[in-house]
Amino acid sequence: MVPDPTHGDLTAIVRAASSGDAAAEDALFRIVYDDLRHMARRRLARLSPGQTLQATALVNEAWLKISNGTKDWDGHAKFFGVVSRAMRNILVDDARRKSSVKHGGGVARLSLEGLAEASDELSSLEFLALHEALEQLEVEDARVAQVVMLRYFSGLGNEEIARMLDVSERTVERDWRFARSWLQDRMSGCPTEERAES
């Protein structure tokens, strides 16, 4: 990929964000969010109806653009944290839109992205349930939620996640398995409050 000169600034923002600058992180988030949307739009325009575009592929592309191909770069973890969050927001926005379309009995074609409607089994409602459960999980256990973010929304492997979070690969795998089950449980509508009251 040809290095994009405009991303020189972005690299600096990523560095600032990874050193704990909250404003830089916000800025990075907005840039990445917009970037992902534009990439999605461009690529989707070339696809024919019914074809899908993996969200994680987009994330990879974004990463390649920003890192200029340098894999051993220290902004890695922060960047993927931000990018996962951006991708999640995009998917959530879209799922909300789609689900309200469905509630309104209207035309599903309204939506541009059709994000999260990749396969029939994942309805936007299911995705929204996942999103809400994930919000709870973030409250309960931030690291576990982060593993989900990195693996699910950024498509990273256990090895990379382990390196980024500075834990063992086994821990990552256990976190993922637990999180998956826990989220699934929340998604099937088991009320936590009941358990707390009992």
Partner: peptide, 19 residues
């Protein structure tokens, strides 16, 4: 854990149906 939903199997995707 024994029967994970398919939602966790494939990464989320973007479709072009509506565009």
């Amino acid at each position: 854990d024994d029967q994970p939903r398919e939602i966790f199997d494939a990464p989320p995707a973007i479709d072009v149906q509506g565009i």
